[in-house]
Every structure is written in C-alpha cells, then in structure tokens.
Design a protein around this nucleic acid. Sequence first.
DNA 1: AAAGTATTTAGAAATATTTCTAAATAGATA
DNA 2: TATCTATTTAGAAATATTTCTAAATACTTT
Lengths: 90, 90
Amino acid sequence: MSFGQTFKALSDPVRREILTLLRSGRMSAGEIGSHFDMTGATISYHLSILKKADLVHESKYKNYIYYELNTSVVEEVMAWLSHLKGGNES
Amino acid sequence: MSFGQTFKALSDPVRREILTLLRSGRMSAGEIGSHFDMTGATISYHLSILKKADLVHESKYKNYIYYELNTSVVEEVMAWLSHLKGGNES
DNA sequence: AAAGTATTTAGAAATATTTCTAAATAGATA
DNA sequence: TATCTATTTAGAAATATTTCTAAATACTTT
C-alpha cells in the first residue's frame, strides 16, 4: 500500500461518494453507476483506482461484480494522520 | 474546507513530507526547502497548496515566513474516515 | 537609499488525471 | 449456439498538476 495512491484515490469526489455508498454494504458496479450521471466506463475507471489503492475489494457472482469497502486501509490512513498530529515521538 | 482539496494536498509525497517535518514545530520556507532537492519556487507552490487546504498556517517574522501544522483539519479528515468505516448510522 | 536575503508570482513545458465513445470480454439465458 | 446483459479495456480529447527559470515583492541591514 502507498499513502500517495490512497490519498490520490480519496481526492476525487466521485470516488469518495462511491466509498460512502459502500458504507451500507456491497454493491455491483452497475448499481454504483446508477447513482452518478456518468458512463459505466468512467465508473469502472474510478473503481479501478479504488481497487489499486486497496480501498475496495471485488467479488464476482453471476454476471455481476460486487464491490465492498476495505476498512483496514482506511484505518492505516487514520493511523498516519494520527501520527502526524500526534506530537513528537521518534 | 473541502475534503477534496485536503485529500489532494495530502496526495503528494513532497507535501506529506513537509507536514511530517512540521510535526516537530514551525519552520521557515527556506528551512523546509533545504530538505528537498527542488527550487524554492516549487516548495513555495507546495506550501500554497497546503495553505489553501488549511493544513498549515503561516506567520511572518523578520525576513522569514514560518509555517506550522494545523492539526484541526487533520482531525476533520480523521472524522470523515472514521465515519466511513464506522458502520451504518444515518 | 542601496544592496542583500527570503519568499512568492508568472509563464512555460512535461506529465498525469478525468471523461467520453467504441470495442472487447465474460458470463447467463433463450 | 446465439444473443443479451454487465463490466472492462483502449484510445483520444480536455483539463489539472508539478516542476523549472526568470522576474517581482518584501523586509533587513549597511
């Protein structure tokens, strides 16, 4: 995991909204796309960025690809931020 | 404050390193720049991004401009991330 | 006031990001 | 098997980001 990749993934409003949608559970690519006024190809691009940043995991079922939040990376980012404001250890 | 701006600011490695430097206290622009193999103009550009994201504050003394971390925005970002992984309230 | 030091601003070049359309892939159903 | 549905990939256009050099600003010291 690289923080650069993770923060870059988090820097786009569409991707943050996708993550927010996934708070309530796994969702297929198409279902995610239906919340946005964009082509499926664009949504797929954003999902690939989130996947590379390991912020989501995918699983296949029938015709669909389901995405779900990976909270462990979210926690790593929080730990980095916590260290930042944490004071002057090490 | 906009999360987009904040995450974008955090997505660059130079800017994350500047913030890490500022963990140990305020520092002048030149002192910050001396830690990088880049022109002062480039460092100034990065500082302006951090400033716009409200991640740092500046104060002037004599010839120098000092920068320091603004931890309150760091906390707002952490709160957003916490909400993300937090489960399904609201 | 003149010269020096610290920092920013302007403008340009190289690179990266975001979006689209069109085509490709993969799996499901008729 | 042929076709339909869901999703991704490729390629291109528009926009944004990062870096540099050169010049401008601002404050200090001589």
